[in-house]
Amino acid sequence: MDVEKYIASGILELYVSGTLSPQENEEVQGYARQYPEIQAEIEAIEGAVLDLTKRASPGMPQNGFENISSKIRTDLGPNSTSDSKPKTNWTAYLGWAASILLAFGLIWVYLQNNQLKSDIEVTNENLEQLEDSLSNIRSEIADKENILEELRNRDVSVVLLQGQQVSPTSYAKVFWNTTEEVVTIDAQGLPEPPKGYEYQVWSLTLNPLTPTSIGLLSDFNSNEDKLFSLENSNQSQAFGITLEPEGGSETPNLEQLYTLGTVGP
């Protein structure tokens, strides 16, 4: 249980003011026995209410009882009997009533203040989450702008990779910047790999046929754009993409060759 959060909820003030249901009162009493911090807070609230009440009440003046007795004897006169009804001190009653109303009013203000603080905390958390989302969106936009700028570069060669026997409908595109030695793979035409497998990209020289791995299309399923940037310093004559066990392979599994394409003249 979060004791500080429970104390800040305002339920202890309602308990002291006597506005809770019997079941809620039993719950507070149980927590008070279990957690000394809660019992101490209840005592502090009760003390504050009593202090406020004492300060707000008119109080009893010095020699109050003697003055009252003298006043009664003066009002009744010598012939008065003890059966006469004393006058009611409405000023004292009103003072006590006002002090009690003031105490409960202060409790209500305290509860409202706690609720306001709680609402502000929730609002701040929502703002932080919104700022994080905006930051992620800006980062994604910047990445996409960089990719578009890369694809529009005049030094970029485009290689179309066609589907092979294992997946005839598959296709992909390779945007190869020979100056920057970077390839961008557009893998939108590949199906999602099964669990435990990843696509691996190979740079090929044809005579003799020599495959060199240039990287994996990691996190394929979570990449919405299916655009992947990989380094390639090879004198590539063709590119191929195979499906390999997660983590990649040293040599390509040609039975799982999904796409293949040669670099044009």
Rank of each mutant, 00 (worst) to 15 (best):
M1H: 12
M1F: 11
D2A: 08
K5A: 15
K5I: 11
I7C: 00
S9M: 07
V16K: 02
S17D: 12
T19K: 08
L20Y: 03
L20P: 02
S21W: 04
S21A: 10
P22D: 08
E26D: 12
E26M: 05
V28D: 00
Q29D: 03
G30L: 02
Y31K: 05
Y35R: 01
Q39L: 03
E41P: 01
I42E: 02
E43D: 10
E43F: 08
E43H: 05
A44M: 04
I45N: 05
I45R: 07
L50P: 00
D51I: 00
L52H: 05
T53E: 13
K54V: 14
S57C: 10
P58S: 04
Q62D: 14
N63T: 02
N63L: 12
F65C: 01
I68W: 14
I68T: 15
S69E: 09
K71P: 01
R73C: 11
P78K: 15
N79L: 15
S80Q: 15
S82G: 13
S82W: 08
D83I: 09
S84H: 15
K85T: 15
N89L: 13
T91H: 11
G95T: 08
G95A: 08
W96H: 15
A98W: 05
S99D: 09
S99K: 06
I100A: 12
L101N: 06
L101C: 04
L101P: 00
G105D: 01
G105P: 01
L106C: 11
I107S: 04
I107D: 07
Y110V: 00
N113C: 03
N113Y: 14
Q115N: 04
L116S: 09
L116C: 01
S118A: 14
E125D: 11
E125K: 14
E128N: 05
L130W: 05
S135P: 00
S135D: 11
S135A: 12
N136M: 08
R138P: 00
R138E: 14
S139Q: 03
E140F: 10
I141H: 08
I141E: 13
E145P: 02
R152S: 15
R154E: 14
V156W: 09
V159A: 06
L160M: 06
Q164Y: 12
T169I: 10
Y171K: 08
A172H: 07
K173N: 09
V174R: 02
F175C: 03
N177K: 02
N177E: 06
I185W: 07
D186V: 08
D186Y: 10
Q188E: 10
L190N: 07
L190Q: 09
P194R: 02
G196I: 08
E198Q: 08
L204Q: 07
T205V: 13
N207C: 01
L209G: 00
T210G: 03
P211A: 15
T212E: 12
S213M: 06
G215A: 14
N221P: 00
N223I: 07
F228S: 04
E231P: 03
N234S: 13
N234P: 05
Q237H: 07
Q237L: 07
A238Y: 03
F239G: 03
F239P: 03
G240T: 12
G240E: 09
T242F: 06
T242V: 09
E244Q: 14
E244I: 04
E244R: 06
P245V: 04
E255K: 06
Q256V: 01
L257P: 11
L257M: 15
T259I: 10
G264H: 06
